[in-house]
C-alpha cells in the first residue's frame, strides 16, 4: 500500500518557532526513510508566494497567481514533475484531466539549505 503524507504548517512560523526543524534535520530524516527502503519521493516546497493555480473549463485554460484556497474541495492526488521552467510545468498541469473539474496548484520544489549533504547523510545513516 502506498501512502501520501502531506505536511501542513503556517509558513510564517515554520522556521522561527523554538521547536522549528533545521533543514539538516529534515534531510536527515528523509534519508533515514530512504535507507529503510520505504521512500518513493519527498520534497520541500517553496513558499506560497510562488504558487500558481491552473484550471481548465470548456477547453479554456485559466492561470492565476496564488495557491488553491477552496476548502470545499479536497486534495485528490499529485504529480511531481521535472520541468524546464514554470511555463512547461503549467502546460503539464493543464493537461491533468482533473484540471477540467478541479484545480491544480503548481509550486516549485525548494532545495534544502544544508552545509555539506554527504556528511549529513553519513551521520544520519550511522
Amino acid at each position: 500500500m502506498k501512502y501520501l503524507c502531506l505536511v501542513y504548517s503556517d509558513e510564517s512560523t515554520l522556521h522561527t518557532l523554538p521547536d522549528s526543524p533545521e533543514d539538516s534535520e529534515c534531510l536527515a530524516y528523509a534519508e533515514k526513510v530512504q535507507a529503510s527502503g520505504r521512500m518513493i519521493a519527498a520534497e520541500a516546497l517553496q513558499s506560497v508566494h510562488t504558487a500558481t493555480t491552473v484550471r481548465v473549463r470548456n477547453g479554456e485554460t485559466s492561470i492565476t497567481d496564488g495557491p488553491f484556497a477552496e476548502t470545499k474541495e479536497q486534495l485528490a492526488g499529485f504529480y511531481l514533475v521535472d520541468a524546464e521552467d514554470l511555463n512547461e510545468a503549467l502546460r503539464i498541469a493543464e493537461g491533468i484531466p482533473a484540471a477540467r473539474v478541479g484545480s491544480v496548484e503548481v509550486r516549485p520544489v525548494r532545495e534544502l539549505q544544508v552545509e555539506s549533504p554527504s556528511v549529513q547523510a553519513q551521520e544520519s545513516h550511522a
Binding site: Q46, H49, D65, V106
Partner: peptide, 8 residues
C-alpha cells in the same frame, strides 16, 4: 516569484 517559480 519570477525568480523562485522560474517564470522564463
Amino acid at each position: 516569484k519570477i525568480r523562485d517559480a522560474r517564470i522564463p
